[in-house]
């Protein structure tokens, strides 16, 4: 049995310890907001927050997740919710499939750096692929979110 803490709730799972966190979240526990995109840590669709930092959940064996605080797109954190609001204002998603991962990566960036520069946004957000090409809106929404937070 492995005990996972996801979105503040504990889950006991009995699975192959090498199973990546992604599949435990999606197929065993049943949160489907975290997406499968490539299975190789290349596209960022499967990003979750591990102790506040974005990781590719398709690359993280579940056995290494015990004692970690996992937040998925279904979770609630101040930065994630602020970004989601900004995402809606900029009407960012097209198909929307990659956006869970995009939002988690952006949340992680703001957790570590409340005022990212353009280059830092580019660097951090280049971990994620959007095939629909919503990049200009993602950038705009992140900058807007930072401005709003700095105002309040």
């Amino acid at each position: 049995m492995i005990t996972l803490k996801i979105n503040g709730k504990e889950h006991e799972v009995d699975v192959d310890p090498t199973m990546p966190l992604l599949w435990v979240i999606r197929d065993i526990i049943g949160y489907t907001g975290t997406k499968f995109g490539c299975g190789k840590g290349l596209c960022g669709a499967c990003m979750v927050l591990m102790d506040g930092n974005a990781v590719n959940s398709c690359q993280m064996p579940v056995s290494a997740m015990e004692g970690k605080e996992i937040i998925t797109i279904e979770g609630k954190t101040e930065n994630l919710q602020a970004l989601q609001k900004s995402w809606a204002e900029f009407n960012v998603p097209q198909c929307g499939f990659c956006q869970s991962g995009q939002l988690i990566t952006a949340t992680s960036m703001l957790n570590n750096n409340p005022n990212p520069s353009e280059a830092e946004i580019n660097g951090n957000m280049s971990r994620n692929i959007c095939r629909c090409g919503t990049y200009t809106r993602i950038k705009g929404a992140i900058k807007h979110c930072v401005e709003q937070k700095n105002k309040s």
Binding site: F36, I73, E74, W87, P93, C95, F97
Partner: peptide
Amino acid sequence: LPSIDVVNLSNGSAVFGLDKR
């Protein structure tokens, strides 16, 4: 007009084929 689905597409609740259970 913003997408009618923008909120669900930003919080993980929209059901894609891959999410059907």
